[in-house]
């Protein structure tokens, strides 16, 4: 981690200034906004509208075919020039993407910063809190859909991100499970006071997020 341990500023926020993303001559995204800690900013739009390009741009892996400009600041630190691993932007994908070659604990440990202390104990503690007490040594392939999503969220939070990107993380879940997981994810984000951007095409997501909404 090259980041200096910033004094966790009293008011963490994610600030996008004149973010402009285009594919050829077609403008996909034109955005200017500030997201406060704990706020969930929702970007709605049909597929192909540039939602995913926005997340890819923020995360630092926009394909070279796109052109993008603008400034992205997390807690007043400019991140657009940083490689993805130094931006400290956590990302939840549509799929939980638990590494198939690692155990549940291995996945969580992958998220923990290398210099973290008492790794085993911390992992046990968060698993316990999430109601997954005996899951440390389990093969992720044997987990249910909801359990996988929860482990993915725990892994994200353990990585101590400064902001969170949510790429339709609930879209593949059944309706019941969906509400449940959404609540847990939003709760985790609010408790950690993280600014978040949610990409979705489900109105219910935007409603539950309760923050600003951008329609592409």
């Amino acid at each position: 981690m090259s980041n200096k341990p910033e004094p966790a500023s009293a008011d963490p926020r994610l600030k996008l200034e004149q973010v402009h993303i285009a594919l050829g001559s077609t403008t996909l995204v034109d955005l200017d906004c500030t997201i406060a800690g704990g706020e969930i900013f929702t970007v709605m739009g049909p597929s192909g509208s540039g939602k995913s390009s926005l997340l890819a741009y923020l995360g630092g892996f926009l394909a070279p075919a796109f052109t993008a400009s603008g400034s992205v600041r997390i807690n007043d630190q400019e991140v657009t020039g940083l490689p993805p691993e130094e931006r400290r932007l956590g990302l939840l994908f549509q799929d939980p993407l638990l590494f198939p070659h690692l155990s549940v604990a291995g996945n969580l440990q992958f998220g923990l910063p290398a210099k973290a202390v008492d790794k085993k104990a911390r992992i046990a503690a968060v698993l316990n809190q999430a109601g997954l007490a005996d899951f440390a040594d389990r093969d992720p392939a044997t987990l249910s859909g909801g359990q996988k999503s929860r482990v993915a969220l725990l892994r994200l939070l353990l990585s101590e991100p400064q902001a969170v990107l949510l790429d339709e993380p609930f879209s593949k879940l059944d309706t019941d499970l969906r509400r449940d997981i959404r609540e847990q994810v939003f709760l985790g984000i609010r408790q950690a006071k993280l600014p978040a951007i949610l990409v979705s095409h489900d109105e219910a997501d935007a409603e539950a997020a309760g923050g600003q909404v951008l329609r592409l």
Partner: peptide
């Protein structure tokens, strides 16, 4: 699937770590 590597990056893994560990 590059999502594995992007995921690794958002979790703070450097390019070499993504290669060796993912």
């Amino acid at each position: 699937d590059t999502r594995w590597l992007q995921l690794g990056a958002t979790l703070g893994a450097t390019a070499n770590q993504r290669l060796w560990r993912i």
